[in-house]
Design a protein around this nucleic acid. Sequence first.
RNA 1: GGCGGGUUGGCGGAGAGGUUACGCAGCGGAUUGCAAAUCCGUGAAGACCGGUUCGAUUCCGGUACCCGCCUCCA
Length: 499
Amino acid sequence: MTKIRLTNTKSRRKEAFEPIDPLNVRLYVCGPTVYDRAHLGNGRPVVVFDVLFRLLRHVYGERHVTYVRNFTDVDDKINAAAQARKEAGDPRSLEALIRERTDETIRWYHEDMDALGALRPTHEPRATEWIGAMIAMIGDLIAKGHAYEREGHVLFRVRSYRDYGALSGRSVDDMLAGARVEVAPFKEDPMDFVLWKPSDDGLPGWESPWGRGRPGWHIECSAMSYELLGASFDIHAGGIDLQFPHHENEIAQSCCAHPEGGFARVWMHNEMLLVDGRKMSKSLGNFFTVRDLLDQGWPGEIIRMVYLGTHYGKPMDWTAEKAEQARTTLRNWAEMVEGAVPGEVRAEVVDPLSDDLNTAGALAALNDLWKRKDAAGLLASAHLLGFDLQAIRHQPWAQPFAFEEVDGRFLREGIDYQPTLSVIGWGAVADRTRETAIAILHRWLALRHVGDFETADRLKSDAMRLGVELRAHKSPTGVAGGLAKLADRVDPAALEGLL
RNA sequence: GGCGGGUUGGCGGAGAGGUUACGCAGCGGAUUGCAAAUCCGUGAAGACCGGUUCGAUUCCGGUACCCGCCUCCA
């Protein structure tokens, strides 16, 4: 069996992965707070850990992996958005406005992550549907002396958990020295964090032994992972920015409530997405959403490939150059796979993936399969990385296109025939664009024929500027032919101006 | 201030204590009115300073710089 090795943040080492139960490998990933579109940074863990999910399914079997990713749909930013709409005159209740907003955001999230080729997790619990489990866990923590109630709040007693700070490598005393901790007067200790807080009438709330209120952020992951995966499970993952305090607090809650369990064995953290060297984040405002890129015409598969080009443990930048390279690569792969039947997933692709999810290495191995013309292996192995090359082949941006004007035949450039006069592009080409390009091609060839290279070159560079590349070649009959190669977007009106 | 991570050729980005990563770009050749495309070939690296070693870019220590967390955050 394939041996998977993963870097465990807890030990800061690469460790051999041994599932607690190979018949039910359990993975929990911290999901989004659903108040807005996911930005590109939010998409990274989704794609990275989707590859992990696929790898685990590959190794242990599809039915033997359980993947949970939550939706945080109780949050002060969500409340604020709903309150703003209510104040703007919306007659509906706050709860209704919140539910509408979170439903819509979840729908967007699914659309965008589906486009990135991410499989849906086995379970996607919403925090608001597990309030009872959270209340039960909080009650248990109070009973065990790890939490206390003050003024309608319930706080976790950080000093009661000896190992607090072990995940992120800090000590409570060191952190207090930093002293950027909010100190509410009712806290026993400045490090204590909120499990439950009171809600006034203008906020959503649930009845609890401590009055009407709402849960703190960290408790939902502890409660839902316990309910769906048990007191101990295999892997807990998320962005590195969640390591502290979110994951540290989860560990404290879960290990104190269920000391027999030990919570997650392996912790994995993906590094951040950068924009101009700075972390992409909503608070800095330097973000763009996955939807923005999709709307700009970058297919999800290309975005996915750019993500996977960098190891998850390293910071990464999004650049158009990377996306263009990914597009070229995917077109190459998709073209070769025509008519191929999937073979075995190649070991040379699984091996780097098994080595701490080295997706960049796996992509290099895929490209090697392409160069060796192993279509069956490429097709199957790319699928393990979440690329459906057969489907990509049918997408407009990846389909070679040829139009043969002289005798009206429709042939594929480079596959059936080298046409004598043709327009090629990627995807459907509008009639008007094609006809204009053909007319320019005629004129260009005529100028060359009479030896007026100066005018011909000017026409060629003008056309190039508008996204039409003119080329001459010898046709199979020995007669010079012409080819107009279209960029992804060409404005036909501007092109007509050249005639 | 505390804690953690990073620094590889023009760019992106891997593995391995000693043998070509790879991709893109570049360069040379074939071809070409010029170019493009294609094919063949090819140069180029491991922040800095020490240490361990027969040998380190790969291990260890230090320095510099960059980034993240310590407040919401993937």
